[in-house]
Design a protein around this nucleic acid. Structure first.
Length: 264
DNA sequence: ATGGTAGGCGTCCTA
């Protein structure tokens, strides 16, 4: 089963890209962020027509997350439990169930998460970022106790290591790379998660290139979109990658998809 | 050197 995460920066603007990419990538489950629309405005019909079930936690103008699944899907959470600002739609969680070849049940719990950017730091936005990460960590503890396959995917807005940014010095004081942000991500990972991309790849790779200053052309990127796997999901990890192609298309999102393959 | 670009119920805010 292939699972991907993609911050599309407006589902309305990016629908054609998403449909093209779904056709060529053969992804079973897609975790979307920054859909920037209410539930009613989400193009559910267009996506159902090409074979996906749709779950949306939308918001007007900002944020908004969704999950697409070729397999039956049950929504478990809309909104992060005890989120510091529940008016911001940044979390949706579901259980997807691919058909077992032998009739066995193989449910996988997935979440699509849009972490706060946190700039400027210090300040109230940075405080909100850290508060959100603390509540996410608490919820992740609860989910890990279920000892089931779990994929926490999304735009984490955190650069894990210096090798995950083109110029670490230039990002030293940015909310995405401050020591407290990186420590909060480490606390989460250290609960027992596996970074699906880094587990299988040692090379430098990015998931985001700013629209400004020719960042894409200069390959001035960041790796801030991640798929974190519970031990039971990591046991089944067979492949992962970052699909750079969509970032090079006309009128792209500033993010490109990260994906992983779990054996059935 | 504080620019640059993109998206949205937009004349600013967020990223």
């Amino acid at each position: 089963m292939r699972i991907a995460s993609w911050n599309v920066n407006s589902i309305k603007i990016r629908l054609a890209h998403l449909l093209d990419w779904l056709k060529q990538s053969k992804t079973d489950v897609v975790l979307l962020q920054e859909i920037k629309c209410l539930d009613d405005g989400f193009p559910a019909l267009e996506l159902e027509t090409v074979g996906y079930n749709v779950a949306v936690h939308g918001q007007k103008t900002y944020n908004g997350v969704a999950i697409l699944s070729r397999h039956p899907m049950t929504v478990e959470q809309r909104g992060l439990p005890e989120a510091p600002d529940p008016t911001q739609s940044r979390y949706i969680e579901a259980i997807v169930e691919p058909p077992g070849a032998d009739g066995a049940r193989r449910p996988v719990r997935v979440a699509s998460i849009y972490f706060p950017n946190g700039n400027p730091a210090p300040g109230p936005k940075y405080d909100h970022k850290l508060a959100f990460m603390a509540k996410l960590e608490a919820h992740a503890r609860t989910l890990l106790a279920f000892e089931e396959p779990l994929v926490l995917g999304g735009d984490y807005n955190v650069i894990p290591q210096p090798e995950d940014v083109y110029d670490p010095k230039a990002w030293a004081t940015d909310a995405l790379f401050l020591p407290q942000s990186r420590a909060a991500l480490r606390r989460l990972v250290n609960l027992g998660f596996t970074d699906a991309f880094r587990a299988l790849h040692a090379e430098v790779a990015y998931t985001f290139w700013d629209y400004q200053a020719g960042a894409w052309q200069k390959d001035h990127g960041l790796r801030i979109d991640h798929l974190l796997l519970s031990p039971q999901a990591a046991d089944r990890l067979t492949a992962s990658g970052i699909d750079k192609k969509p970032r090079g298309w006309e009128k792209p999102s500033d993010h490109t998809p990260v994906w992983c393959e779990l054996s059935v």
